[in-house]
Design a protein around this nucleic acid. Structure first.
Lengths: 121, 121
DNA sequence: TAATTATGTTAGCATAAACTAACTTTTTTG
DNA sequence: CAAAAAAGTTAGTTTATGCTAACATAATTA
């Protein structure tokens, strides 16, 4: 099962929330992404079933190794792309939205190419 | 009704096929995109109902003004992004795939920002 | 011309990913 | 403690977008 864009986004959000709060619950993700509780509940079930996250007895969500790797990859892309677009003069909100969409569709090869190009220029 | 990514892609494909052939039929689009005939048939029905294309008695498909504008916008992005990625050293096939995905998710503002940046550098 | 092939359509299915409604369970708090 | 609020789940809906199966029609060709 190939990981979907939405799954990548959930994992990235969990990583961000882990850095911000002590523990991450489904409701925190729902608030962060402006999704409803049922949407998140179902999504977490899938992520758990596919080995991307763990949910303890208290409902605290954590990333597995696999989940963490994807989350970090997305987060790095997000950070880099949004910073770059903002540097180019793009409005911050638009830059963040674009980064959030591009990060899920760009290939590793293209991302790395842009990154190394930008380090040189 | 906000235009969807798939609709943008169909319109862009029609534009490309118009340049390549005398007239564009549903089957040509199906072959180009590697979709089945029914998928294209249904998609064309929607594009027609929403005023993006016209289909004459012989089944020849053409873009309306609205459809053409979207197609050209996507085509310009596609051309620019793929050329740029290839220049950065990305494999051609990957560059084309990435361009095809990024073109549908990037904002006008970010695209223009990248374009003007690249003209200067 | 008759048979074959090509093209197009309709109907219904599948999947992903959101939603609402309704419920349970847990936690606060007056 | 009892009521209210918060959190989580289940069931069923919606939309987008592809698919297959089956059919109709049109065009080629043997």
């Amino acid at each position: 099962m190939k990981i979907q864009e939405s799954a990548e986004n959930y994992l990235e959000t969990i990583l961000i929330l882990e850095q911000r709060n002590a523990h991450v619950r489904a409701i925190d993700i729902a608030n962060e992404l402006a999704f409803t509780k049922p949407s998140v509940s179902v999504a977490m079930k899938h992520l758990r079933e596919n080995g991307y996250i763990l949910i303890d007895g208290a409902g605290s969500i954590s990333l597995t190794q696999t989940g963490l790797e994807i989350a970090q990859k997305m987060y790095e892309r997000h950070t880099f792309l949004s910073k770059w677009l903002i540097e180019l003069g793009v409005d911050k909100d638009i830059a963040l939205e674009d980064a959030c969409r591009i990060e899920h569709v760009i290939s590793t090869e293209s991302f790395e190419a842009i990154k190394s190009k930008l380090l040189i220029v």
